[in-house]
Design a protein around this nucleic acid. Structure first.
Lengths: 198, 198
DNA sequence: TAGGAAGTCTAACAACGTTAGGAGTTGCGA
DNA sequence: TCGCAACTCCTAACGTTGTTAGACTTCCTA
């Protein structure tokens, strides 16, 4: 029965088209334009069709969050070649803030309260794992024993998140936020080094 | 004409009752319960009455944001007696994170995208001024020249904001977030000290 | 070829923010 | 005291949102 596989493929395709249409609307017109009817219109279907692919609007938005994390991780990829660990860490941080500035609405959805907290946490797992990896490498190569890796991870995570969010404000701006993130990360690492050295 | 003053007082009173009802609903039942009809019901009026006191729901929410900042600043007040500058700074930071944990929905409203960014910035001015004050005092007493006070301010602001937001997650929690904020602030200050000392 | 499954649409529901228009009350001047 | 003006408040409605029910069409299988 090859027809059933074709059906399944078509289903997956329209599902993907829905996600892409939603992403496009969100990024170009903001969250207030992200309505079920609008998305359905853009993929040339009626609204109820969306509910054949997603239980509700929240599930679709959760998918956008996951999509956003994939995009972000892809942006991190080209930094992986950087040989110096500390620079790899700081450049990743810079890339993170840049992503927030380039995709403000998507970034807000990835971190705001519109999407279920559990779904957000799950989507962020890969990025957190990357940060943990970078931090352990830094700790090892610089011989700075971090008393609690999880804590250090969460501190950096929170710091970058906060500064990236600051960058959304007109009074701060993106490139300034990137500089701030650099400074903050430098200061944090220097502080931990000083702690270990004392 | 004393009646006009009485009218004005009554107007101000119902306005205040609206704000308090809205605050109560937000804090106890979250932002999804914060509807105009619900608030009007709680103050025993019909919905349109709300619009005699606020141009729209956004204006009411902006008022809640301002209210939230007053509450937060009141929480900072008792820390002002602390004689040691660095401890005053760290305890204020701890109080900030505690506030976020004690009033999660209000805190989210104060920092999320639901309320106009300009209104939020304006409401936060006093708190930012306090942070700047604390930081200049710290810089002076510890003889650590900060190359850019504004940047240092924004870094701490962003860091605390990010970590406080992390504290909203079930996986982190409030007291842990307070510890993280302490650690982060210590590390930042230590890092700046090390920078200046080098 | 008959019948059931799958896909899609129109129509509707409840709830939301918001506005228009009309009652009812209050207070001042003639 | 009467009537006019202002103020206060409510009912009713509009347009939009997320979401669901039910009917109609299309297509594959038996």
């Amino acid at each position: 029965m090859p027809h059933t596989t074709r059906r399944a493929r078509e289903r997956a395709e329209t599902r993907e088209r829905i996600v892409e249409a939603a992403l496009h609307v969100l990024e170009t017109e903001g969250p207030s334009a992200l309505t079920v009817r609008r998305i359905a219109n853009d993929v040339e279907y009626s609204a109820p069709v969306v509910y054949q692919h997603f239980a509700n609007k929240g599930a679709l938005m959760a998918e956008l969050v996951a999509h956003g994390h994939h995009l972000m991780l892809a942006g991190f990829a080209h930094v992986a070649e950087e040989p110096d660990v500390e620079r790899r860490l700081t450049r990743t941080a810079s890339e993170y803030v840049r992503f927030a500035g380039d995709h403000p609405h998507l970034y807000a959805l990835m971190n705001g309260t519109a999407v279920d907290a559990e779904a957000r946490r799950h989507a962020a797992e890969a990025a957190i794992a990357l940060l943990r990896e970078l931090l352990t490498a830094w700790s090892a190569t610089h011989a700075v024993p971090l008393p609690d890796l999880d804590e250090a991870c969460e501190i950096i995570w929170g710091t970058l998140y906060g500064i990236a969010s600051l960058g959304q404000l007109d009074t701060v701006g993106n490139e300034r936020a990137r500089r701030l993130a650099q400074q903050a990360l430098q200061a944090l690492l220097l502080g931990w080094r000083a702690e270990a050295g004392a």
